[in-house]
Simulated assay, not measured.
Amino acid sequence: MKFEQILPFLKEGKKVFRTGWNGRGMFIVRQKGYPEGISCNRQTAEAWDLSEGDLFKVNPYLQIKNADGTHAMWVPSIGDIFAEDWEIKS
């Protein structure tokens, strides 16, 4: 599939990946974020010069599960956008 074809699936909460990625088990998801806010923990408060417990609002974003099991925010590369090897993880 093309990148634009997987967007509706991401919005539905599906996991998607590229067959061209080298890492096994990698996929991306849409995180809903916290548009109404969430109480920030100490780590977030220190990073953003807030007080622990302050309301921290987060817009939706994409997140990737890396081959080593870690997770990170994700932004598609030009190669990802124009790739046609996207699939839905079952």
Results as ranks from 00 to 15, higher is better:
residue 1 M to Y: 05
residue 1 M to K: 08
residue 1 M to Q: 10
residue 2 K to W: 08
residue 2 K to D: 14
residue 3 F to G: 00
residue 3 F to N: 00
residue 3 F to D: 01
residue 4 E to L: 05
residue 5 Q to W: 03
residue 5 Q to L: 07
residue 6 I to P: 00
residue 6 I to L: 07
residue 7 L to C: 09
residue 7 L to F: 08
residue 9 F to P: 00
residue 9 F to V: 01
residue 9 F to C: 08
residue 10 L to P: 11
residue 11 K to E: 13
residue 11 K to V: 12
residue 11 K to L: 14
residue 13 G to E: 11
residue 13 G to Q: 10
residue 13 G to R: 12
residue 15 K to L: 08
residue 15 K to W: 00
residue 15 K to C: 04
residue 15 K to P: 00
residue 16 V to L: 05
residue 16 V to Q: 07
residue 17 F to G: 01
residue 18 R to S: 03
residue 18 R to L: 06
residue 19 T to C: 02
residue 19 T to I: 10
residue 20 G to K: 13
residue 20 G to H: 02
residue 20 G to A: 15
residue 21 W to R: 01
residue 21 W to Y: 07
residue 23 G to I: 05
residue 24 R to G: 04
residue 25 G to H: 03
residue 25 G to I: 04
residue 25 G to R: 03
residue 26 M to T: 12
residue 26 M to K: 06
residue 27 F to L: 04
residue 27 F to C: 11
residue 28 I to H: 02
residue 29 V to E: 14
residue 29 V to Y: 01
residue 30 R to Y: 07
residue 30 R to W: 08
residue 32 K to I: 09
residue 32 K to T: 07
residue 32 K to E: 15
residue 33 G to I: 02
residue 34 Y to D: 03
residue 34 Y to I: 00
residue 34 Y to P: 01
residue 35 P to E: 02
residue 36 E to W: 03
residue 38 I to A: 12
residue 39 S to N: 10
residue 40 C to L: 08
residue 40 C to Y: 05
residue 40 C to K: 03
residue 40 C to P: 04
residue 41 N to M: 02
residue 44 T to K: 09
residue 44 T to H: 02
residue 45 A to Q: 02
residue 45 A to N: 03
residue 45 A to C: 06
residue 46 E to V: 08
residue 46 E to I: 10
residue 47 A to K: 15
residue 48 W to N: 15
residue 48 W to L: 11
residue 49 D to C: 13
residue 49 D to P: 04
residue 50 L to M: 15
residue 51 S to R: 15
residue 51 S to N: 15
residue 52 E to L: 09
residue 53 G to R: 10
residue 53 G to N: 12
residue 53 G to L: 09
residue 54 D to V: 13
residue 56 F to K: 10
residue 56 F to E: 05
residue 58 V to N: 04
residue 58 V to A: 03
residue 60 P to R: 05
residue 61 Y to Q: 09
residue 61 Y to E: 10
residue 61 Y to S: 11
residue 61 Y to C: 11
residue 62 L to V: 14
residue 63 Q to W: 02
residue 63 Q to P: 01
residue 64 I to W: 11
residue 64 I to H: 07
residue 64 I to T: 08
residue 65 K to G: 00
residue 65 K to H: 14
residue 66 N to E: 13
residue 66 N to G: 01
residue 67 A to H: 14
residue 68 D to Q: 09
residue 69 G to E: 08
residue 70 T to W: 07
residue 70 T to E: 13
residue 71 H to I: 06
residue 71 H to T: 14
residue 71 H to L: 12
residue 72 A to G: 13
residue 72 A to M: 14
residue 73 M to R: 14
residue 73 M to L: 13
residue 73 M to A: 15
residue 74 W to E: 10
residue 75 V to Y: 08
residue 76 P to C: 04
residue 76 P to R: 10
residue 76 P to Q: 09
residue 77 S to P: 01
residue 77 S to V: 04
residue 77 S to I: 02
residue 78 I to N: 00
residue 79 G to S: 14
residue 79 G to N: 14
residue 79 G to L: 08
residue 82 F to M: 13
residue 82 F to L: 13
residue 83 A to F: 03
residue 83 A to V: 07
residue 84 E to A: 10
residue 85 D to P: 05
residue 85 D to M: 11
residue 86 W to F: 06
residue 86 W to C: 08
residue 86 W to E: 07
residue 87 E to M: 12
residue 87 E to P: 00
residue 87 E to N: 14
residue 87 E to V: 06
residue 90 S to A: 15
